[in-house]
C-alpha cells in the first residue's frame, strides 16, 4: 500500500513537472514570440543626395492602424499589405546601403539569388542552387518576420575555409640575372573548396556551401570547420543545461552556390559585411 502511494506520488510530481516545463518551454516562448529579435532603430534620418538632412520615418510598419480596418480586410488584402510593406522595407534597406560607399550582399530567397551590389548597381549575381531556412524563421509569416528583416543585417563573425585575400611573398631580386631566374609563367590560381559561416546581428547565421563535391583535402578542411561549430553548439547546450540559462534561438539560412560564385562573393564583400534579406 505504501509503495503504491509512493508510486502515484512520484508519478504525479513528475507529470506536473513535465507539464510545467512544456508550458514554459514551448507554449510561452511562442506565445510571446521572442525568438526573432526586433530591429532597434536608432536614427530616423535618411540622407538626401542634396545634402539636406530630411527626417523621415524609416519604419512605417510601426504605424498603428485601427482594428476596424483589420476586421474589414480580407486575408488577401492583408497579404497584399504584407507584401507591400516587405517590399518597402527591402527598398528602404537597399537605399540605406546604396547611400554608403561599400559593397553589400542582397540575398533574395524568393528569386533564389545572391547579389553583390554597390550604389544600387548589381555587380555580380549568383544563382542560389539550394537553400534551407530554419523552422524558427519560416513559422513567422507575419509582422515579427517583417520587423526582423526590416533593417540590413551586419556581420559579427565570419569563418571560412578560404582566405579573404592571400598574398604571395616574393623577395626582391638582387640583380637582373636573379630577376630573370625567378620569372615563371603566370597561371590562374586554383579555387579552393568553400564553406563559409557568417554570424549576423539579430542572431542570424548564414552558411554558404559550394555545390561541387570537394576534394579530399578540401573535405577535411570543411569537416574541421563544421566540427568546430558543432562542438561550440554542444558546449552551449551543456552550459545551458548546467546553468539553467535559456539560450536564444539562432535561426540559420543555408545556401548552396557554385564554387566560383561562393569564392567571388566572399572575396569581394568587405570585412564588415552588410546583408539585406528577402524571403
Amino acid at each position: 500500500m505504501k509503495n503504491k502511494l509512493a508510486f502515484w506520488l512520484i508519478t504525479c510530481i513528475l507529470s506536473i513537472f513535465v507539464i510545467y516545463i512544456l508550458v514554459i518551454s514551448i507554449v510561452m516562448p511562442v506565445m510571446t514570440k521572442t525568438a526573432l529579435p526586433k530591429v532597434v532603430i536608432n536614427a530616423p534620418v535618411v540622407k538626401e543626395k542634396s545634402g539636406k538632412g530630411k527626417t523621415e520615418n524609416p519604419n512605417p510598419k510601426e504605424e498603428p492602424i485601427p482594428d476596424s480596418l483589420v476586421a474589414k480586410s480580407s486575408k488577401d488584402g492583408l497579404k497584399d499589405i504584407f507584401e507591400l510593406r516587405k517590399k518597402e522595407n527591402w527598398l528602404q534597406s537597399r537605399f540605406e546601403l546604396a547611400s554608403e560607399d561599400s559593397m553589400y550582399l542582397v540575398l533574395d530567397l524568393t528569386h533564389n539569388s545572391a547579389v553583390i551590389e554597390m550604389k544600387g548597381i548589381v555587380l555580380h549575381e549568383c544563382k542560389v542552387i539550394k537553400s534551407e531556412v530554419s523552422n524558427s524563421i519560416t513559422m513567422f509569416q507575419n509582422e515579427t518576420l517583417l520587423n526582423w528583416m526590416a533593417e540590413p543585417f551586419t556581420v559579427k563573425r565570419v569563418d571560412s575555409t578560404i582566405p579573404k585575400i592571400s598574398f604571395i611573398e616574393k623577395i626582391a631580386p638582387k640583380d637582373t640575372i636573379e630577376a630573370n631566374k625567378v620569372e615563371v609563367e603566370p597561371k590562374m590560381p586554383e579555387l579552393e573548396d568553400v564553406f563559409i559561416v557568417m554570424d549576423f546581428d539579430r542572431n542570424l547565421r548564414l552558411v554558404i556551401q559550394q555545390n561541387e563535391k570537394p576534394t579530399e583535402k578540401g573535405q577535411k578542411v570543411i569537416s574541421d570547420l563544421r566540427w568546430k561549430y558543432q562542438l561550440a553548439e554542444i558546449r552551449r547546450t551543456v552550459q545551458s543545461l548546467t546553468k539553467f540559462n535559456r539560450q536564444p534561438s539562432m535561426p540559420q539560412i543555408t545556401i548552396v552556390l557554385p564554387k566560383s560564385d561562393a569564392t567571388i562573393l566572399y572575396k569581394s564583400l568587405p570585412v564588415n559585411i552588410k546583408m539585406i534579406l528577402k524571403m
Binding site: 516545463i21 518551454s25 511562442v30
Partner: peptide, 23 residues
Amino acid sequence: LSLIVLMIVYTPDFQNSAFKMKS
C-alpha cells in the same frame, strides 16, 4: 521525457522543432 523537455528549453536546435509544432 523530462530530459528531452529540458533540451527543448535550453537548446536552439530543439527549439526549432518546437516552433514547427507551433506553426
